[in-house]
């Protein structure tokens, strides 16, 4: 294992492992969020379960590390890639050999990061750090918990707020459409048969994430 992370493929391995971990996290996150469509009790209970689960104490810092490693190594690798071609081409016709998303992963990742900061300030910081007074308690099935449903509902009734969240979901979805199969390719879990399969699964997965996260703001906007 010596010096594995000094090698290009070793650094990319870190991108893949953290990427796959974040991919898994997004599925869990979306599942919880979809409870919003089933009313306040259902969502508050789901959110309460996530917040009080003993596992969360380990998963939360792991998640933060996962994000950090993914972002730091993306920056290192992108800077190296910039240096690998000091003189740029004057004419460039890249569209016929690769997808726009695959060429702009760092840009897409950056938009997702901006969204993540907005998102954390709106909910995580408000609920967990500031303990904002606007968040009332609610009793569901005899258990007292934060009424996060009302907080989300109030936010999502603002149209431009919904727009930010839908744009966030679109950029995330584009990032994942390449990132998903690319992670498997880098780890070496791919071959000529699985190439098509992984790319298809990548599209299905990124659509689930993109559409799934967009449905929620749209739901609050319409109903």
């Amino acid at each position: 294992m010596s010096n594995i992370f000094n090698a290009s493929i070793g650094r990319k391995l870190l991108m893949s492992i953290t990427g796959l971990f974040l991919i898994l996290f997004l599925l869990v996150h979306l599942t919880i969020n979809l409870f919003l469509l089933f009313g306040s009790d259902a969502y508050n209970q789901a959110a309460h379960f996530m917040a009080t689960n003993p596992m969360i104490k380990i998963i939360e810092p792991t998640l933060a590390i996962g994000f950090l490693v993914h972002i730091i190594y993306a920056t290192i690798l992108t800077l190296q890639n910039q240096k690998a071609r000091p003189e740029k081409y004057t004419a460039r016709s890249a569209g016929n050999s690769s997808t726009w998303s695959s060429r702009n992963m760092y840009f897409l990742g950056f938009t997702v990061l901006i969204f993540l900061v907005i998102h954390l300030l709106d909910f995580y910081v408000k609920i967990k750090i500031l303990h904002d007074e606007s968040i009332k308690d609610v009793v569901v099935n005899g258990e007292t918990m934060h009424d996060t449903y009302t907080l989300v509902q109030a936010k999502f009734e603002i149209w431009w707020f919904d727009l930010i969240y839908i744009l966030g979901a679109i950029f995330l979805s584009l990032h994942l459409s390449h990132g998903f199969w690319s992670a498997f390719q880098t780890i070496g879990i791919n071959n000529s048969h699985w190439m098509k399969r992984l790319k298809t699964i990548a599209i299905i997965y990124s659509l689930i994430i993109g559409v799934g996260f967009s449905i929620i703001p749209l739901y609050f906007l319409v109903f």
Binding site: K12, N81, K83, A84, S97, S98, S102, H178
Partner: peptide, 15 residues
């Protein structure tokens, strides 16, 4: 030698 890191765009196999 200063080659960049592969980001799996797949442009190489097309060209």
């Amino acid at each position: 030698l200063g080659f960049g890191n592969c980001s799996n765009t797949g442009a190489c196999e097309v060209e």
